[in-house]
C-alpha cells in the first residue's frame, strides 16, 4: 500500500526536485507540497483506493508523510470492511 501511496504522492505532490527516494516519514510539506497540491494528492488517493476522506481527516497532520497517509487509508479501508 505504501508503494501505491508513494507513487500517487510523487505524481500529484508537485515537488520541486527529485523525490522518488522520499522516506516514509519524510515531511511532505517541507519537501515542497503546497496545500493546493495536497488537494490533488487527496483526490487521487480517493480515486485509487475508492475511499472518501471525511472532513475530520482533512488536516495537515494526516497528509504530512507517506506513513501518516497509509494509516488514514488503512483506517478507512477497515471501516469499509475491506
Amino acid at each position: 500500500m505504501k508503494d501505491k501511496i508513494r507513487a500517487i504522492v510523487v505524481e500529484h505532490g508537485r515537488f520541486a526536485g527529485n523525490v522518488s527516494s522520499l522516506a516514509d516519514d519524510a515531511d511532505l510539506y517541507a519537501a515542497g507540497m503546497t496545500s493546493h497540491a495536497s488537494v490533488g494528492v487527496m483526490l487521487a488517493l480517493e480515486a485509487a483506493f475508492d475511499i472518501e476522506f471525511p472532513d475530520r481527516m482533512l488536516k495537515r497532520s494526516v497528509f504530512e508523510s507517506i506513513s501518516a497517509i497509509a494509516m488514514a487509508v488503512a483506517e478507512l479501508l477497515k471501516e469499509a470492511g475491506r
Binding site: 496545500s35 488537494v39 483526490l43 480517493e46 472518501e52 471525511p54 482533512l58
Partner: peptide, 13 residues
C-alpha cells in the same frame, strides 16, 4: 481560487 480547490475534497459533513 484556494477555496474552490479545497472544496473539491471538503465534504461539509
Amino acid at each position: 481560487a484556494t477555496n474552490a480547490a479545497l472544496l473539491l475534497v471538503h465534504k461539509g459533513d
